[in-house]
Simulated assay, not measured.
Amino acid sequence: MNYLKNIDNFDNIALVLYQKDDLRLEQWPLEDSLKSNECLLQAHSCGICGTDLTLWKKGFVADFVVKNPYVLGHEPSAVVIAVGNDVTHLKPGDRVAVEPAIPCLECEFCRSGRYNLCPISNQQSHGLPPADGCLRRYYVHRADFCYKLPENVSLEEGAIVEALAVVVHACRRVNVGIGHNVVVCGAGPVGIMSALCAKAFGANKVLITDIDKSRLDLAKELGIDEVIHIDINNFNDKQVAQTIKEQMSSDALGADVTIECTGVESSVCLAIYATKSGGKVGIVGLGGNPRIPLSCAAMREVDLIGVCRIKDDYQLAIKLISSGKLNVKPLITHKFRIEEAIDAFNLLKSGQQGVLKVLIQY
């Protein structure tokens, strides 16, 4: 299908990662065809997350290694420019949030409903090497992984949907429910959204920890019940865990559920110690392979539950924003034009206080 006629003054500027510490803005080729189940998108906003930052600083994250130049970006919102012949739920002009990982829909995992575990999606997750991401002006994507945004949800909020969908999946994985006491480790964008999502899921009390007091202040403003500021110069995970238990409930047994969003070894240990016997710890943060107190978890039957991306969570994430149950706007602290994208990455790298979600916009 010839869709280039839908584009005036073709300019596909993209943010390309060549290797560790080598990030460039340059023109990127457009796919030469549009399949019947695909749509052509024009980028609007794309969030930068810790994964992007790690890929830039280290050249890898988890099992994803930068071997060839590729386009970054996996938290996008966009506008539909053209649709394939079989696409009926979208039309040109629609505003969409885009789910970046594309599964095969044929393997054992996909057929059982757990498409987020599809091995093919690891190779086709837009924005993770080797698959080109969404920080380019135009790109083609499978239409059934594009979700139309309601009128009351902005395209900037649409760029938060991917991260929120991960959080929704995490809360579903650990079965956050009515009356639960929940601890969240890490008050970055994902951590704060985890805490807010736990409240939306019916949690009784939610406590969040972080080393950055400004982030904890924002969490309190957004309605999180309790916060604990971690002093990294005087940190003892068991002592902090005991403080958390005492703040969580009168019986000081600990959290029913803990969601760990940092991937930092000391924080993962804290998550296990702060969870009551028989409770659950959801592992969201990816920080390598930390040494953790497995014997403590095993002897108290604390379940460590992995959280892998997203599984049918976009629609609920969009509803949480649209209904007003979850306000993501305060998390967007900085916005940069695509021409300033490298400045955006340098800001995140600086660790400057007050920086939460950074958007790159076209």
Rank of each mutant, 00 (worst) to 15 (best):
C134V: 08
P92I: 03
V153P: 08
R173Q: 15
R309H: 10
G84I: 04
A143Y: 13
E99I: 01
I310T: 11
G133S: 05
N152V: 09
R142N: 07
K311H: 13
K57F: 01
K91T: 03
I292F: 05
G133D: 02
D8F: 13
K57I: 08
E340L: 01
A317K: 05
H44F: 08
N175H: 15
I305A: 03
R95I: 02
P29F: 11
D63H: 12
A203D: 08
L164R: 07
P119F: 04
R111A: 04
G50Q: 15
K35P: 00
D132M: 10
K329E: 12
V302P: 06
I13H: 14
G47M: 14
N68K: 10
L316N: 10
E26S: 08
P293H: 09
P189F: 01
R137G: 03
A97H: 03
N233T: 03
E301W: 04
T88W: 00
G285C: 07
G263P: 05
C185P: 00
R142Y: 02
L128P: 00
F109S: 07
C49S: 11
V284M: 13
N181G: 11
C134R: 11
I120Y: 12
I160T: 15
Y70L: 09
E75P: 08
G223P: 04
G263D: 02
E221V: 10
H229S: 07
A143F: 12
K329H: 06
A198F: 08
A62F: 04
S323L: 05
N346H: 14
L222D: 09
N2Y: 08
S45G: 10
D212W: 04
L320P: 05
P119V: 00
Y147N: 06
D217S: 13
S266F: 01
V184R: 04
S295F: 12
A255M: 03
V80N: 04
Q247A: 04
G179I: 10
E151L: 11
A14Q: 14
E106I: 02
L304V: 11
A344E: 10
N175A: 11
K57T: 14
S36N: 13
P103C: 06
K238W: 03
C171H: 05
A163Y: 07
S154W: 12
R114G: 00
A14W: 15
E265F: 01
L155G: 03
P76H: 03
L196F: 06
F10T: 06
K335A: 07
R142S: 07
R291P: 00
H229K: 15
A187W: 07
A198R: 11
D21H: 15
